[in-house]
Each structure stands twice: as structure tokens, then as C-alpha cells.
Amino acid sequence: MIEVEGLTKFYGAFPAIQELSFNARPGEIVGFLGPNGAGKTTTMRILAGYMPPTSGTARVAGFDVVDQSLEVRRRVGYLPETVPLYPEMSVFEYLTFMGSLRRVPELEDRVDEVLEQVAMLERSESYIGNLSKGLRQRVGLAQALLHKPEVLILDEPTIGLDPAQIIEVRRIIQELGRERTVLLSTHILPEAQQICGRVLIINRGKIVAEDSPGNLQAQLAGAERLVVAAGASCEQLLQLLGGLPGISSVRAGSRDGEVEVATVPGKDLRPLLARTIVEAGVDLMELRTSGLSLEEIFLQLTREENDEQAGG
């Protein structure tokens, strides 16, 4: 549905994105994750047909974004980061205007339908200028859904919403993602973890990692980590656990009586650890696994990249 090959965009001499390549299939929700200024918006603008790339190709729904821009634009629903709306128009007028530009059949019924979908039907006559940020975001989303696009491109769709609205918007996106291709950008990591089937981590205009949130975590964490808290001092615990088979390292944890145990991948050592501690006559207080959170992975990846840049 989305095929990106060697996409590069320069603003003057500044490379916003460099040699970006990725794909997205129908029925897939792909999360675009990265710090501010990483090139997320630039990529999305290119895919939505707003601006051409400096080099490289991008095809959306089988059409080239430069040569067949109109065909691409017909098939894409786009919610820009700034959620541009006309404040002096009513919600209904606005959606009717956008829908008529997109030749939506039976437009008025369809407008009611999408307003229903984003739970805005009762605000249809309100002026957009009087709406709160969260409601505007929903109007923007309604606009992107209006023509039943094959591909949805959503730039930070949940920014500025309150927690209840965030959950609601995520639910809508998940629902849409069943049949359509959704590309969404975010810098809220749990969000990507929760709704995306695949995550692309982008930093300084380059993709630094690409996988499902689960795999990314496993791959980067390498080995499993366990946190053990017991009624003994750190030294005692280090001594007790250090010699066990299947453990690659033990080090002191964040507080006294707590140690972090790194284990060989693929083996659950929790029963062995519990037994060892209890048999030594020590009280076991806590035993839990601690994988790297997506947040840590993200920071790790973007930091490494930055260090390389600084060094080179």
C-alpha cells in the first residue's frame, strides 16, 4: 500500500530525511516514532502529496506521489499535525466543502456518518472556531475519513487530547486499521506500543529500527533481566546467586537488598532463583522480569545515533 524507496528531502542544505525506505501493507497500522525534528512530518507530507521529495520514490496505493499525485491524493486521508480548519465555518459546512472537493457520493449522509464515528454528531452545527482542541482534532479526523481512503496518514493524531479522548481516538484508529493502511506518527511511546503492529523509529532523518513493538523490545533487551528483592544485603545476594548456572551477570540494584540478574536468553530462571533464596533461609520479597521498555529502547537508539554523529 505504501512503498517508500530511498526517499530524501533537503530543505536548502539541511537534509530533513535521508534515504528512507519502508513498506506498509493493507490492514496494518505502522507507527512512526521519533523525537521532534526527526523528519516524521516531512515524510508524511511527501506521502500525502503536499510536497515532492528531493530524490527517491514513494508509491501510495500503487501510484507514484510525484507523477500521479492526484491519484494518490484521491486515495489518501491526511490529518496534518496542525489540524488546519476554517474557524469561521460550521463543522457541517467544513466537511461538506472538503467532501465536495473529493467527490464523495451522497455527501450529507456520509458527513453524518463520519461525525457519528468520531462522536461529534451533536456538534455538527457548531462553528469550528468555538470548538476545543480535542473536538477540532476529531473534526480533522472526520475530514480524513470522509472519502473512505485506502490509506490514512495521521500526524500526531492524539496530541492535545485529554486522556478519555486519547483512548477514544486510539479505538477509532484501531478499528480503521483493520481494513486500511494506517501510518501514524507519535512521540508517545506507549501509544505506539499499544496500537501499532509495526514501529519505525526515525532519528535525524534516518530509520534506526523497524519491527513490531514486541520484537524490538526482545531484540534490544538481548537477554532477559530479572529483578530480585530479598531480606538480605546486596553482597549476600550477589554471593548467593553469582554461581548459579544460566546466569550471565548479577549486579546490585537501585536500593539495598535488590539485585538485577541478567540471564541467558530463552530460559526462565525464576523458579531456580526463588528456590535458591528460600533454601538459603533468606526471605524473598520480590521477583520480577524487567524487559527494556520501548521508552528505553527509543532513548538508547536515538542516543547511540546522536553519539555517532557527534563523534564522526
Binding site: 503536499y50 492526484l70 496534518p80 496542525t82 488546519p84 480548519l85 472538503m98 472537493l101
Partner: peptide, 14 residues
């Protein structure tokens, strides 16, 4: 100025 250009230029309008 309002950014609505982004909307118009990503609609199928020449």
C-alpha cells in the same frame, strides 16, 4: 498562514 493550504494541496485539486 493558517496551514489550511496543506489541506487544499493534499485534496485532489490541481
Amino acid at each position: 498562514r493558517m496551514g489550511t493550504m496543506e489541506l487544499l494541496l493534499t485534496a485532489p485539486v490541481r
